[in-house]
Design a protein around this nucleic acid. Structure first.
Lengths: 243, 243
DNA sequence: CGATCAGTTGAGAATGGTCAAATTCGGTGG
DNA sequence: CCACCGAATTTGACCATTCTCAACTGATCG
């Protein structure tokens, strides 16, 4: 795959048009190709040397574990997303990242990123934009868990994933392929797996959304966005690409 | 107050020792002093021109409102914190910020920050560190709401605020002055104000923590941290300043 | 063909919400 | 100094969302 069609390039281009120098620097990020199997813990909480990856293929999740063994999934990462970027500057990594599917990723050294900041300011801005957007996603996730009912929350979260998949060309408003289990959803949404199951059932029975056999189908997109109160503006992705 | 004793300088110095050039650039951030009264909405969700402030005195909160009028507070800002930094690169601001107490702050232009990146790379790194730390705080807040019980959550949240206050010289492990109402806490913790009241009561009755008359008192710091499972490492503040 | 893992369903319990009514407390004006 | 006001806090009674435990189904895989 050429750098021009990579999910990350596609995503960053939503924000700024990248020049040849930017693309060249970006290509240099992709020299250390690595593969991981499902379940592999790519980044460990407490790690002293930060690792940063760019996800090219597959899904991962970042999470924190509590003393009692409970898990909170902070976010899922899809192609084009950075893994571990936030911890690049912290002296110890504050979360873990696990491969959900088989993964192909590029390992990036923190020093490569800092060099890029000096060499390709346009690209640097785009990377900071991606980081800001990732944080906006986490903030909206916080709102999901804090103030939305289980149904609104589930609908909102899956709509967001759909919008993010669409941005990298892996989905549209009919739905997207989704390798998550109901346990993953439960740990992300702060619910029990049993309750997630019941919520998915009522959403399906109401003709709103189907989560089955590795695919999320938006059965009634407009009623679903209304139920969830979903407004894409926080994703800041209605840019050059879409308009 | 000299730039050397400002809460922000104190905080950033935890991460790197700033040189004269850095301090000079930092001083230049403080040219536009502004004051706000309690309740004033300093930053509005949906705003097209981003505003960034550095908080010198007082407390603020960043939040999002839902269609049904419910509010989720994302974070409280205390002296030394940035307001609106995350939105500096997004094309429309994704949250609002309101003054809780009377506030003194410096307004910073996004362009000033970018200039600083070119001119004072050490300072730039420190600012990115502060932004990463802010995000780590939001992530831990997500864990609070998603996977901790109301009591653990309340204890953890107040312990975190205490640690942050300590970093800027406004608190210690006996407690800190805190202008929040129980409604603020409720909107931050994803609980009802009534339940927050009950939780605070049991924490007080158990001799763990007192939240009263504008002050949070840690009555039994070690039992409290044990209950909350509080580990400061995500705050990444055990740096030059403290050891 | 067992074993394992994801998904389903039911019943009862618990955490936290809602509604409504005090009570306290810091001001403010008389 | 005192009466009063509004905001914040407190408490009780009842309700509902969500959890836990437990059992059962169905698909996949060596």
């Amino acid at each position: 795959m050429s750098i021009l069609e990579s999910p990350l390039t596609r995503k960053l281009s939503t924000f700024v048009a990248l020049g040849d120098g930017d693309l060249e620097t970006l290509a240099r990020f992709h020299r250390r190709r690595r593969s991981f199997l499902p379940g592999h813990e790519m980044i460990h909480e407490g790690q002293k040397e930060p690792s940063v990856f760019i996800l090219a293929k597959g899904w991962a999740c970042s999470y924190k574990l509590l003393p009692d063994g409970e898990r909170q999934i902070v976010d899922f990462q899809i192609p084009g997303d950075f893994l571990g970027l936030r911890s690049a500057l912290l002296r110890t990594t504050d979360h873990s990242v696990e491969a959900i599917t088989p993964i192909e990723a590029s390992e990036v050294l923190a020093s490569d990123i800092f060099e890029a900041f000096a060499r390709a300011p346009r690209l640097a801005t785009a990377i900071l934009w991606a980081a800001s957007r990732d944080e906006a996603v986490v903030v909206e996730h916080l709102v999901d868990i804090g103030r939305r009912t289980a149904e609104e929350r589930t609908a909102h979260f899956l709509l967001e994933l759909g919008a993010r998949m669409e941005l990298v060309g892996l989905g549209d408003r009919t739905g997207f392929d989704c390798p998550l289990t109901q346990y993953h959803l439960a740990d992300a949404l702060g619910l029990s797996a049993v309750h997630v199951n019941r919520v998915l059932r009522t959403l399906r029975d109401d003709g709103l959304l189907t989560f089955q056999k590795g695919r999320v189908t938006f059965d009634d997109f407009s009623r679903l966005t209304a139920l969830a109160g979903f407004d894409t503006s926080y994703l800041d992705q209605d840019g050059p690409l879409l308009r």
